[in-house]
């Protein structure tokens, strides 16, 4: 089953093309990484797929609904963890979770139950009563992802989820993301090679607004004849197009 299918998805800002003619298919339950350097078009792609910005041309179907003509239906089925740690700073960890659950339609009892699940799944039980603003960067990111998951989305967008985190916090977050694999469709953007390689089922390498290659890490290494994934990334990002 296809979760996301983009057709000629394009975004232009004045004269600059941020994303150009993106054609992608992502299966349900897949963890798909969009890998690229800063300014490659990863975040713009996520913003279009999550209905935060309209494409200049082209379209995408998210679980069968168009992001252009049925954004409200799409929004009911997705959730986003933005690049910045988007939490309500003066609310407690639990209140943050219950807030998002309520906004997505859960009643008070369900919100509390779902929050308990998320607190437990993301190792936040001990800080449940703490205000979000006093959490460490790693904990805030975990909370941010837990907030995105509490609405039971069928598709989850994670925009640079480990940006700025230290190695230990990053590994903890990887572990949390791995636990979600297979259960929901995850589209993750990153510019860390090892992150894409460690977590993803498939990787799409973006450069200058275009997808240069799509495949598993092994396929991309093999196709480019590289020694490792970093070399494969460089080869893909600097070549006109590589078909995996």
């Amino acid at each position: 089953m296809i979760a996301i299918k983009t057709t000629g998805l394009t975004k232009r800002y004045n004269n600059k093309t941020a994303v150009n003619d993106l054609n992608l298919s992502i299966s349900q339950g897949e963890l798909f990484a969009l890998l690229g350097v800063n300014g490659a078009g990863k975040t713009t792609t996520i913003k279009m797929l999550s209905c935060l910005t309209k494409p200049t041309s082209g379209d995408a179907l998210v679980l069968g609904d168009s992001i252009v003509t049925k954004p409200h239906q799409v929004k009911e089925k997705i959730n986003v963890s933005p690049q910045e740690t988007a939490v309500a700073r003066n609310l407690s960890v639990r209140e943050n979770l219950e807030l998002i659950a309520g906004i997505y339609g859960s009643n008070r009892k369900d919100s509390r139950m779902k929050s308990d699940e998320m607190l437990s799944a993301f190792g936040l039980v001990e800080v449940a009563g703490d205000k979000a603003k006093i959490l460490s960067g790693g904990m805030q990111r975990r909370l941010s992802i837990a907030m995105a998951l509490i609405s039971d989305p069928q598709v989850l967008f994670l925009d640079e989820p480990t940006l700025g985190l230290d190695v230990l916090a990053r590994r903890e977050l990887w572990s949390a993301i791995r636990k979600m694999k297979g259960k929901i469709t995850i589209i993750l953007t990153t510019h860390y090679m090892e992150e894409a390689e460690a977590l993803s089922d498939r990787i799409g390498i973006m450069s200058k607004g275009e997808i240069k290659a799509v495949g598993t890490a092994g396929e991309l290494i093999s196709k480019t004849g590289s020694k490792n994934f970093e070399d494969a990334f460089v080869a893909c990002a600097t070549e006109p197009e590589v078909t995996a």
């Binding site: 209905c51 929004k75 906004i103 339609g105």
Partner: peptide, 17 residues
């Protein structure tokens, strides 16, 4: 303005509100 700066508002804009 803080909700905008921290992307909290962006998170909510992706919701059905």
């Amino acid at each position: 303005s803080k909700d905008r700066a921290t992307s909290f508002l962006m998170r909510l804009f992706a919701s059905p509100l």
